[in-house]
Structures are given as C-alpha cells and as structure tokens.
Amino acid sequence: MKNNKFILILFLLFFASCSSVSYFRVDVEISRKAIFDINQFKEIIVTDFFIKKESDSFDLNQEVVNYFTTQMKQNLKPEVSSRRISFPNEEIFKDKSFWKSILPDSQETVLFTGTVDYLEEVRKAIVQTKKKRDEAFSRDKAIEERRFYTINLNFYFIDAQTGEVLYTQAFKETQGYKNPKQTGAFAFYDLADTVKVKLFNNVLGTARTQKRYLIKD
C-alpha cells in the first residue's frame, strides 16, 4: 500500500514537472508620447482665464487659476507661478505682441491661459419607482431631478518670448448629480479633475501596463 502511494507521488511529480500550461502572461509597459512636451520649458506662468460665462456661486477664474497652478506644481517639472492679467476680448489669444509684452525678457517660459465657461442646469425626467414593499410588482411614476454641470475649457500654451501659441486644446466635461443640494463649486473640482487627467496625459505622456500572452505551442 505504502509502495503504491510512493509510485503515485513519483508519477505526479513526473507529470507536474513535464506538463505545463499552454500560455504565460507577461506585463508590457505601453508608453504614449506627450503631444506637447511641457517639460522642455523651465517655467510655466499660469495667467488669468478669459471667462465666457461666470458661475453664480464662486469665482470661476480664481478657482481655475488656483487649481491648475497647484496641480502643475505637484505634477510638472518646470517652476510654476501665477500672474494676473486682464483680457480686453477673446481675440487676444491671436495677438502675439500682447503675450510678448507680459514677460519680454523671458526664455524657456510658457504662459498657460485660456477661456472658460461654466454651466449649470436642472434636468427633470419621469421615472418609474416601486410603490411599496408589499406590492413589489406595482410601479408608480414620479418626477426626478438631476443637477448637471458643464465646463468648457480651452487651454493655450503660449511662448512668452515670441507670443506664439504653441499648443491649444479644448475640453468639454459634463457631470450629473442626483443630490439636489449639490453645489457648483464642489462639482467644479470633479470636472477639473477629469480635465486635468486628459490634459496632463497630453503634455506629459502616459505609461500603462498591459497584459500579453506568450504561447508555449
């Protein structure tokens, strides 16, 4: 009996050592190049933004400038600071001399600016709800409200020395909330976070890990 067990173990060892799975998984790091490489500059100056539509509940320009200054300081290599400017109109982004005049002697400095508008709306819809616990299959109709916030951000990276627009990108993000007491200021941070991730992917490049299968035969 004991001998039989020993032989069985030997056979198991034999098959375990020689037999194998048909595939192996390996990690592959996939990098995506930066569309506009921000790290080639020494300094980033975040200026005020041109406000197309102001929010009623908070200072939109101040929040945008503060948010992106902080995020850039945390995530980007160049030195980051902010500067107050005033916009005569939206066409100013095309005016090289205007941007050149902000920091005339600067080198390897990029100005980060743009336009922004923030919209808030309440959408109503008729939804079916369960009536009572003891009437599980009966349904009732009710009107439900959702608060929606939309941010439109159009960023410009401008060469401080030449006043030339080096890179521009527009983002539109919308987020809906079930909570009727949701504030615009709170929603702004959710939307800004989404925009930030997309913007930084484009200016820093991204690396992520994917799986690949190696096949044995």
């Binding site: 390996v26 592959v28 690949r212 299968y213 190696l214 096949i215 044995k216 035969d217």
Partner: peptide
C-alpha cells in the same frame, strides 16, 4: 509555429 510568431511579436512590441 504560430506560438513562435506570436511570442516574437510580443518581444518586438
């Protein structure tokens, strides 16, 4: 051998 070609592709990637 499709396995060899597949594995080579992964390596080239």
């Amino acid at each position: 051998s499709s396995a060899a070609h597949n594995n080579l592709a992964v390596a080239y990637e």
